[in-house]
Protein backbone atom coordinates (compact mmCIF):
# COMPACT_ATOMS: atom_id res chain seq x y z
CA UNK A 1 0.00 0.00 0.00
CA UNK A 2 2.85 2.34 0.94
CA UNK A 3 4.57 1.40 -2.30
CA UNK A 4 1.49 2.31 -4.35
CA UNK A 5 1.18 5.64 -2.56
CA UNK A 6 4.85 6.36 -3.21
CA UNK A 7 4.43 5.53 -6.94
CA UNK A 8 1.37 7.78 -7.17
CA UNK A 9 3.31 10.53 -5.46
CA UNK A 10 6.17 10.19 -7.98
CA UNK A 11 3.74 10.23 -10.91
CA UNK A 12 2.01 13.28 -9.50
CA UNK A 13 5.27 15.19 -9.08
CA UNK A 14 6.30 14.22 -12.65
CA UNK A 15 3.05 15.52 -14.11
CA UNK A 16 3.43 18.72 -12.04
CA UNK A 17 6.89 19.12 -13.48
CA UNK A 18 5.62 18.61 -17.03
CA UNK A 19 2.80 21.09 -16.42
CA UNK A 20 5.24 23.80 -15.30
CA UNK A 21 5.82 25.32 -18.77
CA UNK A 22 2.07 25.46 -19.28
CA UNK A 23 1.62 27.29 -15.95
CA UNK A 24 4.37 29.73 -16.86
CA UNK A 25 2.77 30.33 -20.25
CA UNK A 26 -0.64 30.96 -18.66
CA UNK A 27 0.90 33.24 -16.04
CA UNK A 28 2.62 35.22 -18.79
CA UNK A 29 -0.70 35.57 -20.58
CA UNK A 30 -2.52 36.63 -17.45
CA UNK A 31 -1.33 40.23 -17.39
CA UNK A 32 -2.09 41.14 -21.02
CA UNK A 33 -5.41 39.30 -20.95
CA UNK A 34 -6.43 41.12 -17.77
CA UNK A 35 -5.58 44.37 -19.50
CA UNK A 36 -7.62 43.42 -22.59
CA UNK A 37 -10.53 42.36 -20.41
CA UNK A 38 -10.44 45.67 -18.49
CA UNK A 39 -10.23 47.53 -21.83
CA UNK A 40 -13.05 45.73 -23.68
CA UNK A 41 -15.11 44.31 -20.83
CA UNK A 42 -16.35 40.73 -20.50
CA UNK A 43 -18.84 41.24 -23.35
CA UNK A 44 -16.09 42.28 -25.75
CA UNK A 45 -13.90 39.24 -25.10
CA UNK A 46 -15.78 37.18 -27.70
CA UNK A 47 -14.71 39.66 -30.36
CA UNK A 48 -11.13 39.62 -29.08
CA UNK A 49 -10.95 35.82 -29.32
CA UNK A 50 -12.50 35.84 -32.80
CA UNK A 51 -10.24 38.60 -34.08
CA UNK A 52 -7.22 36.46 -35.13
CA UNK A 53 -9.44 34.11 -37.11
CA UNK A 54 -11.34 36.99 -38.68
CA UNK A 55 -8.04 38.61 -39.61
CA UNK A 56 -6.91 35.47 -41.45
CA UNK A 57 -10.36 35.10 -43.03
CA UNK A 58 -10.25 38.73 -44.12
CA UNK A 59 -6.77 38.53 -45.61
CA UNK A 60 -7.24 35.24 -47.41
CA UNK A 61 -10.95 35.37 -48.28
CA UNK A 62 -12.67 38.74 -48.04
CA UNK A 63 -9.91 40.86 -49.55
CA UNK A 64 -9.37 38.47 -52.50
CA UNK A 65 -13.12 38.45 -53.14
CA UNK A 66 -13.15 42.27 -53.13
CA UNK A 67 -10.15 42.31 -55.49
CA UNK A 68 -11.91 39.81 -57.73
CA UNK A 69 -14.98 42.06 -57.91
CA UNK A 70 -12.75 45.04 -58.70
CA UNK A 71 -10.96 43.13 -61.50
CA UNK A 72 -14.29 42.09 -62.99
CA UNK A 73 -15.11 45.77 -63.48
CA UNK A 74 -11.89 46.47 -65.37
CA UNK A 75 -10.43 45.65 -68.77
CA UNK A 76 -7.00 45.31 -70.36
CA UNK A 77 -4.24 42.77 -70.02
CA UNK A 78 -2.25 44.44 -67.21
CA UNK A 79 -1.84 42.36 -64.08
CA UNK A 80 -1.98 45.18 -61.52
CA UNK A 81 -4.94 47.50 -61.07
CA UNK A 82 -3.02 50.68 -61.88
CA UNK A 83 -2.59 49.49 -65.47
CA UNK A 84 -6.22 48.50 -65.94
CA UNK A 85 -9.21 50.53 -67.12
CA UNK A 86 -12.63 50.75 -65.54
CA UNK A 87 -15.19 49.20 -67.91
CA UNK A 88 -18.20 48.95 -65.62
CA UNK A 89 -20.29 45.86 -66.27
CA UNK A 90 -18.89 45.21 -69.78
CA UNK A 91 -17.34 41.89 -68.81
CA UNK A 92 -20.64 40.66 -67.34
CA UNK A 93 -22.46 41.88 -70.48
CA UNK A 94 -20.02 39.91 -72.66
CA UNK A 95 -20.62 36.78 -70.63
CA UNK A 96 -24.40 37.16 -70.59
CA UNK A 97 -24.78 38.28 -74.21
CA UNK A 98 -26.66 35.38 -75.70
CA UNK A 99 -29.43 34.91 -78.26
CA UNK A 100 -30.45 31.61 -76.75
CA UNK A 101 -28.90 30.41 -73.52
CA UNK A 102 -29.76 26.82 -74.40
CA UNK A 103 -27.53 26.99 -77.50
CA UNK A 104 -23.99 28.08 -76.51
CA UNK A 105 -22.97 28.78 -80.11
CA UNK A 106 -25.41 31.72 -80.17
CA UNK A 107 -23.60 33.39 -77.27
CA UNK A 108 -20.79 35.90 -77.53
CA UNK A 109 -18.75 33.88 -75.02
CA UNK A 110 -19.76 30.50 -76.38
CA UNK A 111 -17.03 28.69 -74.44
CA UNK A 112 -18.41 30.07 -71.15
CA UNK A 113 -21.91 28.86 -71.90
CA UNK A 114 -20.67 25.51 -73.15
CA UNK A 115 -18.83 25.15 -69.84
CA UNK A 116 -21.98 26.15 -67.94
CA UNK A 117 -23.98 23.47 -69.80
CA UNK A 118 -21.28 20.87 -69.19
CA UNK A 119 -21.07 21.77 -65.51
CA UNK A 120 -24.85 21.63 -65.08
CA UNK A 121 -24.99 18.19 -66.72
CA UNK A 122 -22.02 16.98 -64.71
CA UNK A 123 -23.51 18.25 -61.43
CA UNK A 124 -26.91 16.62 -61.96
CA UNK A 125 -25.57 13.23 -63.07
CA UNK A 126 -22.48 13.03 -60.88
CA UNK A 127 -24.25 14.06 -57.67
CA UNK A 128 -27.15 11.67 -58.29
CA UNK A 129 -24.85 8.74 -59.05
CA UNK A 130 -22.44 9.62 -56.26
CA UNK A 131 -25.12 9.89 -53.57
CA UNK A 132 -26.86 6.68 -54.64
CA UNK A 133 -23.55 4.82 -54.86
CA UNK A 134 -22.41 6.17 -51.48
CA UNK A 135 -25.72 5.17 -49.91
CA UNK A 136 -25.55 1.66 -51.38
CA UNK A 137 -21.94 1.22 -50.32
CA UNK A 138 -22.64 2.52 -46.80
CA UNK A 139 -25.58 0.10 -46.45
CA UNK A 140 -23.41 -2.82 -47.52
CA UNK A 141 -20.46 -1.83 -45.34
CA UNK A 142 -22.78 -1.37 -42.35
CA UNK A 143 -23.74 -5.03 -42.39
CA UNK A 144 -21.94 -7.72 -40.45
CA UNK A 145 -19.45 -9.15 -42.93
CA UNK A 146 -16.03 -10.74 -43.02
CA UNK A 147 -13.08 -8.31 -43.33
CA UNK A 148 -15.37 -5.29 -42.94
CA UNK A 149 -12.46 -3.01 -42.00
CA UNK A 150 -10.58 -4.05 -45.13
CA UNK A 151 -13.54 -3.26 -47.40
CA UNK A 152 -14.08 0.10 -45.74
CA UNK A 153 -10.41 0.92 -46.42
CA UNK A 154 -10.75 -0.17 -50.04
CA UNK A 155 -13.57 2.30 -50.64
CA UNK A 156 -11.89 5.09 -48.70
CA UNK A 157 -8.44 4.70 -50.28
CA UNK A 158 -9.08 6.79 -53.46
CA UNK A 159 -10.03 9.76 -51.24
CA UNK A 160 -6.42 9.88 -50.04
CA UNK A 161 -5.08 10.29 -53.57
CA UNK A 162 -4.30 13.70 -55.03
CA UNK A 163 -6.77 14.64 -57.80
CA UNK A 164 -3.87 14.91 -60.24
CA UNK A 165 -2.80 11.36 -59.42
CA UNK A 166 -6.39 10.19 -59.87
CA UNK A 167 -6.53 11.89 -63.29
CA UNK A 168 -3.21 10.43 -64.39
CA UNK A 169 -4.02 6.89 -63.27
CA UNK A 170 -7.27 6.86 -65.21
CA UNK A 171 -5.69 8.54 -68.21
CA UNK A 172 -3.18 5.70 -68.40
CA UNK A 173 -6.02 3.21 -68.17
CA UNK A 174 -8.19 4.91 -70.80
CA UNK A 175 -5.75 6.17 -73.42
CA UNK A 176 -5.42 4.61 -76.90
CA UNK A 177 -2.91 2.00 -75.71
CA UNK A 178 -4.12 1.99 -72.13
CA UNK A 179 -5.00 -0.91 -69.88
CA UNK A 180 -8.69 -0.99 -70.73
CA UNK A 181 -8.10 -1.18 -74.48
CA UNK A 182 -5.43 -3.83 -73.98
CA UNK A 183 -7.92 -5.99 -72.07
CA UNK A 184 -10.68 -5.39 -74.61
CA UNK A 185 -8.35 -6.26 -77.51
CA UNK A 186 -7.37 -9.48 -75.73
CA UNK A 187 -11.04 -10.44 -75.61
CA UNK A 188 -11.51 -9.68 -79.29
CA UNK A 189 -13.21 -6.31 -78.95
CA UNK A 190 -12.27 -3.26 -80.99
CA UNK A 191 -10.14 -0.45 -79.59
CA UNK A 192 -12.20 2.54 -78.41
CA UNK A 193 -10.87 6.07 -78.02
CA UNK A 194 -12.46 6.57 -74.62
CA UNK A 195 -11.21 10.12 -74.16
CA UNK A 196 -11.59 11.27 -77.77
CA UNK A 197 -15.30 10.49 -78.14
CA UNK A 198 -17.53 13.19 -76.65
CA UNK A 199 -20.01 11.03 -74.77
CA UNK A 200 -17.44 8.57 -73.52
CA UNK A 201 -15.25 11.43 -72.25
CA UNK A 202 -18.10 12.87 -70.19
CA UNK A 203 -18.99 9.38 -68.95
CA UNK A 204 -15.43 8.79 -67.74
CA UNK A 205 -15.15 12.27 -66.21
CA UNK A 206 -18.22 11.44 -64.11
CA UNK A 207 -17.15 7.89 -63.37
CA UNK A 208 -13.67 8.88 -62.23
CA UNK A 209 -15.03 11.69 -60.08
CA UNK A 210 -17.50 9.32 -58.41
CA UNK A 211 -14.73 6.74 -57.87
CA UNK A 212 -12.45 9.34 -56.32
CA UNK A 213 -15.00 10.84 -53.90
CA UNK A 214 -17.23 7.90 -53.10
CA UNK A 215 -15.31 6.92 -49.96
CA UNK A 216 -15.68 10.32 -48.31
CA UNK A 217 -19.47 10.44 -48.65
CA UNK A 218 -19.80 6.76 -47.78
CA UNK A 219 -18.01 7.50 -44.52
CA UNK A 220 -20.49 10.27 -43.63
CA UNK A 221 -23.45 8.02 -44.40
CA UNK A 222 -21.88 5.11 -42.55
CA UNK A 223 -21.60 7.30 -39.45
CA UNK A 224 -25.27 8.21 -39.85
CA UNK A 225 -26.28 4.56 -40.23
CA UNK A 226 -24.37 3.55 -37.12
CA UNK A 227 -26.14 6.26 -35.13
CA UNK A 228 -29.55 4.69 -35.82
CA UNK A 229 -30.57 2.74 -32.69
CA UNK A 230 -30.43 -1.03 -33.28
CA UNK A 231 -33.58 -1.60 -31.21
CA UNK A 232 -35.68 0.03 -33.97
CA UNK A 233 -34.54 -2.66 -36.38
CA UNK A 234 -35.10 -5.36 -33.78
CA UNK A 235 -38.65 -4.09 -33.18
CA UNK A 236 -39.31 -4.00 -36.93
CA UNK A 237 -37.97 -7.54 -37.29
CA UNK A 238 -40.18 -8.77 -34.48
CA UNK A 239 -43.14 -7.16 -36.26
CA UNK A 240 -42.19 -9.05 -39.41
CA UNK A 241 -41.41 -5.93 -41.46
CA UNK A 242 -39.74 -6.62 -44.81
CA UNK A 243 -36.27 -5.33 -45.66
CA UNK A 244 -37.48 -2.79 -48.19
CA UNK A 245 -40.10 -1.38 -45.85
CA UNK A 246 -37.53 -1.21 -43.03
CA UNK A 247 -35.29 0.77 -45.32
CA UNK A 248 -38.04 3.21 -46.39
CA UNK A 249 -39.63 3.61 -42.96
CA UNK A 250 -36.65 3.52 -40.60
CA UNK A 251 -33.28 3.83 -42.33
CA UNK A 252 -34.07 6.54 -44.86
CA UNK A 253 -35.97 8.95 -42.55
CA UNK A 254 -33.33 8.67 -39.82
CA UNK A 255 -30.49 9.00 -42.33
CA UNK A 256 -32.14 11.96 -44.07
CA UNK A 257 -30.14 14.72 -42.27
CA UNK A 258 -26.84 13.05 -43.25
CA UNK A 259 -28.09 12.54 -46.77
CA UNK A 260 -28.90 16.23 -47.08
CA UNK A 261 -25.42 17.19 -45.93
CA UNK A 262 -23.93 14.72 -48.41
CA UNK A 263 -26.06 16.04 -51.27
CA UNK A 264 -25.17 19.66 -50.61
CA UNK A 265 -21.45 19.01 -50.08
CA UNK A 266 -21.38 16.93 -53.25
CA UNK A 267 -23.21 19.68 -55.15
CA UNK A 268 -20.71 22.33 -54.06
CA UNK A 269 -17.79 20.11 -54.93
CA UNK A 270 -19.26 19.17 -58.31
CA UNK A 271 -19.76 22.81 -59.31
CA UNK A 272 -16.07 23.38 -58.54
CA UNK A 273 -14.87 20.38 -60.59
CA UNK A 274 -11.51 21.06 -62.20
CA UNK A 275 -8.34 19.19 -61.32
CA UNK A 276 -9.00 15.51 -61.94
CA UNK A 277 -11.19 16.24 -64.99
CA UNK A 278 -8.59 18.64 -66.41
CA UNK A 279 -5.82 16.08 -66.08
CA UNK A 280 -8.04 13.29 -67.44
CA UNK A 281 -9.65 14.94 -70.47
CA UNK A 282 -8.13 18.43 -70.70
CA UNK A 283 -11.68 19.66 -71.29
CA UNK A 284 -11.96 17.75 -74.55
CA UNK A 285 -12.81 16.40 -76.94
CA UNK A 286 -13.48 19.89 -78.27
CA UNK A 287 -15.09 21.56 -75.30
CA UNK A 288 -17.30 18.66 -74.29
CA UNK A 289 -15.82 18.26 -70.79
CA UNK A 290 -14.72 21.85 -70.24
CA UNK A 291 -16.20 22.98 -66.92
CA UNK A 292 -16.61 26.51 -65.56
CA UNK A 293 -13.42 26.43 -63.50
CA UNK A 294 -11.38 25.43 -66.54
CA UNK A 295 -12.96 28.23 -68.54
CA UNK A 296 -11.88 30.68 -65.82
CA UNK A 297 -8.36 29.24 -65.79
CA UNK A 298 -8.07 29.29 -69.58
CA UNK A 299 -9.36 32.85 -69.85
CA UNK A 300 -7.38 34.30 -66.99
CA UNK A 301 -4.12 32.40 -67.03
CA UNK A 302 -3.52 30.06 -69.97
CA UNK A 303 -3.49 32.65 -72.77
CA UNK A 304 -0.54 34.89 -73.50
CA UNK A 305 -2.91 37.86 -73.39
CA UNK A 306 -4.54 37.20 -70.05
CA UNK A 307 -8.15 38.39 -69.81
CA UNK A 308 -8.32 38.73 -66.05
CA UNK A 309 -11.44 40.91 -66.19
CA UNK A 310 -13.53 38.33 -68.01
CA UNK A 311 -12.15 35.50 -65.88
CA UNK A 312 -12.98 37.45 -62.70
CA UNK A 313 -16.52 38.16 -63.89
CA UNK A 314 -17.03 34.46 -64.64
CA UNK A 315 -15.68 33.50 -61.23
CA UNK A 316 -18.03 36.00 -59.55
CA UNK A 317 -21.00 34.44 -61.34
CA UNK A 318 -19.80 31.00 -60.28
CA UNK A 319 -19.31 32.33 -56.74
CA UNK A 320 -22.94 33.44 -56.65
CA UNK A 321 -24.05 29.88 -57.45
CA UNK A 322 -21.79 28.52 -54.72
CA UNK A 323 -23.09 31.05 -52.20
CA UNK A 324 -26.65 29.97 -53.04
CA UNK A 325 -25.72 26.34 -52.48
CA UNK A 326 -23.97 27.16 -49.21
CA UNK A 327 -27.02 29.15 -48.06
CA UNK A 328 -29.12 26.10 -48.85
CA UNK A 329 -26.82 23.96 -46.74
CA UNK A 330 -27.04 26.45 -43.84
CA UNK A 331 -30.81 26.59 -44.10
CA UNK A 332 -31.03 22.81 -44.03
CA UNK A 333 -28.66 22.60 -41.06
CA UNK A 334 -30.64 25.27 -39.17
CA UNK A 335 -33.91 23.51 -39.87
CA UNK A 336 -32.42 20.28 -38.64
CA UNK A 337 -31.06 21.95 -35.50
CA UNK A 338 -34.46 23.51 -34.79
CA UNK A 339 -36.23 20.18 -35.27
CA UNK A 340 -33.76 18.44 -32.95
CA UNK A 341 -34.20 21.26 -30.41
CA UNK A 342 -37.98 20.92 -30.57
Amino acid sequence: MALVTEERGQASSLSSLLALPFHWFMAALNAPMSFVQRRFGIGGMGVVFLAPNMLIFGVFVLIPVAINVAYSLTGGTAIFMDGRHFVGLDQYRSLLNCENYAIPSTCQEDAFWQSVHNTAFFVVVQVTVLVLAALGTALVLNREMRSRGFWRSVFFFPVLLSPVVVGLIWKWILQRDGLLNAILLDFGFERTLWLAERHWAMFWAIFVSVWAHLGFYTLILLAGLQAIPRDLYEAAMMDGTGRLRTFWRITLPLLWPNLLVVVILALIRAVQIFDEAFVLTGGGPGTSTMFITQYIYETGFAHVLRNLGLASAASILMGIVLVALTALQLAVSNRRAKKEGA
Binding site: A196, T281, P285, Q294
Partner: peptide, 15 residues
Protein backbone atom coordinates in the same frame (compact mmCIF):
# COMPACT_ATOMS: atom_id res chain seq x y z
CA UNK B 1 -4.35 12.13 -88.18
CA UNK B 2 -5.42 10.76 -84.77
CA UNK B 3 -8.46 12.43 -83.29
CA UNK B 4 -7.19 12.36 -79.72
CA UNK B 5 -4.39 14.89 -80.24
CA UNK B 6 -6.19 17.88 -81.76
CA UNK B 7 -9.69 16.88 -80.73
CA UNK B 8 -8.71 15.37 -77.40
CA UNK B 9 -8.43 18.49 -75.26
CA UNK B 10 -10.06 21.91 -75.06
CA UNK B 11 -9.06 25.51 -75.50
CA UNK B 12 -5.40 26.27 -75.99
CA UNK B 13 -4.13 23.18 -74.17
CA UNK B 14 -1.01 21.77 -75.83
CA UNK B 15 -0.88 18.11 -76.70
Amino acid sequence: MPKEIWGGVAGTTYK
